[in-house]
Design a binder for these strands. Structure first.
Lengths: 342, 342
DNA sequence: TTATAAATGACAGCGGTGGTCAATTTGTAA
DNA sequence: TTACAAATTGACCACCGCTGTCATTTATAA
């Protein structure tokens, strides 16, 4: 029933050690043998037993994903990407939802890693933005990759996959500018999330580049929630000098803003343009569907995992890798934006 | 650094065999020794090496969760419940997102189970409603628990955790009836999901019990999506004789209906009451927040996992267990429902 | 032909479980 | 109290399926 390395060795006429070598891409295996073994492997549809590998070997075959994010779509997407990468490379994924605000969060993470013998960890916000976590992991010598908001690779951001919120926000803002809007408001997400700050910075930069001074009254603090969007838009639409476009820091906020606009009898997009960010299912569950920036979470996650695998393989140089992939969410124009009304 | 069974044995002053006995709840261990060992275990914070256990033992320490559900909140909740149960019992969770409509889905599931040496599987819709999956699993002798929509335990539904959509829908409908509504419409979810049928049945039963014959014009086919809610409500609000309340088969549909009502300048809840089902974050991201039925997904998942564990433990009778926990989603009254307008 | 490098295999674990059997402790009835 | 059965515990071995180490064989170059 179950195929072991012995079966493969027997069929290929070699020792189990050689099969092991082939499985692990070790050097010094003759090409002919390599092919013989590979043939046997695929003929028997052999898949190494993860438990045995973990037990016997020095390296680990599982990575961990720690999360604490209210956005289920984000988590699911990340997970899907990680799983895909894991499947491809024969790794397992350990998922660990937890509370980032717990006092013993660092210890919890350390326990997790040590107990599960993880090859590495993928960290997303908020964990990726907690210096104490990174320090602890470095201290105990566990590899990790952080997915964070940032535009330019730098030595400080090793082990990072960057999501260039700045540039994406810049582009979105440009889209609005090109439609003739100049009175553009910005609905912020949570302050603690650097993504909100980055997006705001990109927004301001785009305005400034066109010679427009960002109006402080149009920059509304808030959080990544529908309600925050409702409130923020309400405030904006009650101003004497209303904006003609709203840049919401994510789709949920945008959906809230859309809702608020409807309540105030403001026609979207004829009287007011609204954009979101993320391309979550939310952005398609509104009417009109939201213009937004597509963040390829699943792909980002895959990349992060691949980075981890590449580094954990023996023979590769360990430690600091210069690689810092940068993803730029792409503008996705839908029906919630239109030319600025005269 | 890492604690093994030997360390525990040394500290407790017993043999490793006894530690093993304690770890596995085997009989014939004196209470005193049991406590001594437990103390040592917790002092050292010992956790058995999963790889070694899997490799050496005959039983398995991981369960699988297969999913293919567009509702990320549902999946995340289920996952959280499963993980909690797993953590408590020292199991691991293998998650496997896949495509339920794939032609080789049965083979894929079998491969997964056999390769990963799973103790069992937790199936949610649509997998829990696919007879071919259940048959295949029974054939290869793998334990599983299905989470399905149903109200009454029956021999046919062994291995099931039931979610009583019928009764919940009955209660929701009663809530509307008590508010004085009699012209109540029903927006269906996907036909293939038995949950939609069950909810509809509960709805009809409640009406009938009050002597109201369900009006076929008020029963609108659809799917579990925002858009479907928009369309369904639009249709209803264009009828000459409009309903005064809408029962949407889930929160997403309800959100769509809410949206549609807004478009038609219908005041919620003054002119029209709308209820959802599920208590997903969606139901709080609308205005007004939705009256709905709370489905405790995380708890349901925990129960399902516990059922699996209980059965997979040696010493317990294997196979058919009479247990069929039934969960009844509870009515949650919020602001989207009000008394029937005169 | 011999020194050297490349390819391969033998073998000992990794950290537990399962089984067998003997030794020890405990409880119990006479 | 004693004897005896029963309950606990431990010692020991094989083994799960694979990897790490090192010795051995084979190919290649000098």
């Amino acid at each position: 029933m179950k195929v072991t390395i012995n079966d493969v060795a027997r069929l290929a006429g070699v020792s189990i050690k050689t099969v092991s070598r082939v499985m692990n891409n070790e050097p010094s295996v003759k090409k002919a043998t390599q092919e013989k073994v590979s043939a046997a492997i695929s003929e028997l549809n052999y898949q190494p037993n993860a438990a045995a590998r973990n037990l016997a070997g020095t390296r680990s075959y599982s990575i961990g994903y720690i999360y604490d994010n209210p956005n289920a779509y984000y988590v699911i997407d990340m997970q899907r990407g990680l799983l895909e990468a894991c499947r491809k490379h024969g790794y397992e994924l350990l998922i660990h939802p937890t509370n980032a605000k717990s006092a013993q969060i660092v210890q919890e993470v350390i326990d997790l890693v040590q107990h599960a013998r993880l090859a590495g960890l993928v960290l997303t916000p908020p964990f990726s933005e907690m210096p104490e976590i990174a320090e602890a992991l470095e201290r105990i010598g566990v590899d990790f990759v952080r997915i964070i908001s940032g535009s330019t690779p730098s030595p400080k951001l090793t082990n990072c996959v960057l999501v260039d919120d700045f540039t994406a926000a810049f582009k979105i803002t440009n889209h609005l500018l090109e439609l003739g809007h100049t009175d553009i408001a910005f609905l912020c997400g949570d302050e603690e999330h650097s993504s909100s700050g980055e997006r705001l910075a990109g927004f301001k930069a785009a305005l400034t580049k066109r010679g427009i001074t960002p109006n402080p009254k149009y920059i509304v603090p808030g959080s990544y929630s529908f309600e925050s969007g409702v409130k923020g838009a309400k405030y904006l639409l009650e101003l004497v000098h209303k904006p003609t476009a709203i840049f919401a820091c994510n789709d949920e906020i945008a959906a809230g803003a859309l809702f608020s606009a409807r309540l105030s009898q403001v026609e979207i997009p004829q009287q007011l343009s609204i954009v979101g960010f993320e391309n979550s299912p939310f952005s398609r569950q509104t009417w009109p569907p939201l213009t937004t920036a597509h963040q390829p979470n699943s792909t980002i996650a895959m990349q992060a995992a691949e980075l981890l695998f590449r580094r954990s393989r023996p023979g590769q140089q360990q430690g600091i890798s210069a690689e810092q992939p940068v993803f730029i969410p792409e503008l996705l124009v839908r029906e919630s934006t239109a030319a600025c009304p005269a």
